[in-house]
Amino acid sequence: MEIQRNIMDYDTVSLDDDNSAVVIIDQTKLPGNIELISLKTAQEIWDAIYLLQVRGAPAIGVAAAYGIYILAKGIDTQDYDTFYAEFKKQKEYLDSSRPTAVNLSWALNRMEQVIIRNSDKTVPELKQLLKKESIKIQEEDIRVCRTIGEYGLSLVKPGDGILTHCNAGKLAASKYGTATAPIYLGQEKGYGFRVFADETRPLLQGARLTAFELYASGVDVTLICDNMSATVMKNGWVNAVFVGCDRVAANGDTANKIGTSVVAAVAKQYQVPVYICAPTSTIDLSTPNGDAIKIEQRKPEEVTEMWYQERMAPEGVKVFNPAFDVTDHSLIAGIVTEYGIARAPYSESLKEIFAKKEAIEAEGV
């Protein structure tokens, strides 16, 4: 159904338990149409993640949690082993939709642990526990993003210019976003940030999504082409770069939307600090460095045809279309998490972040 209201009035992802559906904003239709779609089958959920109808690491995690709950809810058996086997099959299928974003597997594994830890429960009880866990994942996402925003806000001052790449905003999460969380909190406090949003070729998430949601929120946002970032930095208009991420390796290397590493290299040239806004669910200490991160390759049509009335490249030309690149840890000034800001050397500080997380969780805070 088509809705014509402010984009900020709607949840990026929500659970419609009565109709056994995950409801998302179809982000492929933005900014022209705000359209909500209901996902009920494994194929629909898989397609929505793969086709970027729902995207952004936190939002993918929430959608996966709700999705696997909806699929588990429909498993017709009272036998634990049969239920678990079918759950695992569906989980592995959903997990295959986006290989780079660690939040996808993180959320699905967390949901699986509910079943493993409660093998003594009945199937109806397990389904209720899965529902509770999926809701908890979304509630945590909101708290985590706000806390990241608070830490990020400490790195800038009123009136600063901020550049961001891709979309790590509300549309990529449940609320606030990650990279945009400091911007939204600053907006609440009257900081008057000037934001530059890269268009983010080839899928234009910065143009279609970041510029859209920031403008709708009253933020002073200027859209620029990706190849203009050096100019605005050289002009002294940018004081900090905030970007999200899809996976952080143990050494601080970070996979994010293609073009992020270019922004980081340019920022180093002009002595502008680059901050990665990363929930701990996006940090993968089992991945040693960026070379070990699998980079998703996408269809060539996204580059040659997707946004044009007529094909904008010669027929038969080869196209290289990686969805992400890896920003070397040496280009990153800090990794902003919900448990504090990690600084180089990241191989040590990221472990300290997780130690802090474990201590707080052990205290039940």
Rank of each mutant, 00 (worst) to 15 (best):
L51H: 12
V102C: 06
W237S: 06
Y93Q: 04
T12A: 03
A179K: 14
S229I: 11
A57N: 09
T231M: 07
R247E: 09
D328E: 14
A172Q: 10
D220L: 07
H165G: 01
I341V: 15
D9T: 08
K157P: 01
I332N: 09
P279M: 08
I293N: 10
A313L: 04
V274L: 11
D16W: 05
L214N: 12
S229C: 14
L285M: 15
T200A: 08
I116R: 15
N256C: 07
L71K: 06
I68R: 05
A355E: 13
A21L: 08
K189D: 02
A211C: 14
I49F: 01
I68K: 07
F212H: 15
A216T: 13
G152D: 04
D26I: 05
V13P: 00
K157F: 08
D246S: 11
L171T: 06
E133H: 12
N227L: 02
T210S: 14
I341T: 09
A265M: 11
E140V: 13
V336W: 07
V23I: 12
W307Y: 13
A179P: 00
S281H: 13
N239T: 10
D284S: 14
D18A: 13
V336I: 15
K189F: 03
Y191Q: 07
P288F: 11
A64Y: 03
V262F: 02
Q187E: 15
N109V: 12
T222Q: 15
N235C: 10
S119R: 15
T327D: 04
S134V: 08
V243D: 02
D17R: 14
G169D: 03
L331C: 04
G56K: 02
I142G: 03
L204P: 05
M1A: 13
K268P: 05
Q90N: 13
S281C: 14
N103W: 10
C225A: 07
T200C: 04
A323P: 05
S14Q: 11
E361I: 14
K294V: 12
Q187C: 08
E352A: 12
R343S: 08
N321E: 00
I332C: 05
M228V: 10
C277Y: 13
M312G: 00
E338N: 05
L153P: 06
I37H: 01
Y215K: 15
M1N: 12
N6H: 07
G218K: 15
I137F: 11
E348V: 09
I68H: 04
T337V: 10
G161V: 01
M111N: 09
D26T: 09
Q297H: 10
A342F: 01
V365W: 12
L153E: 09
G206E: 00
L39P: 09
G186K: 13
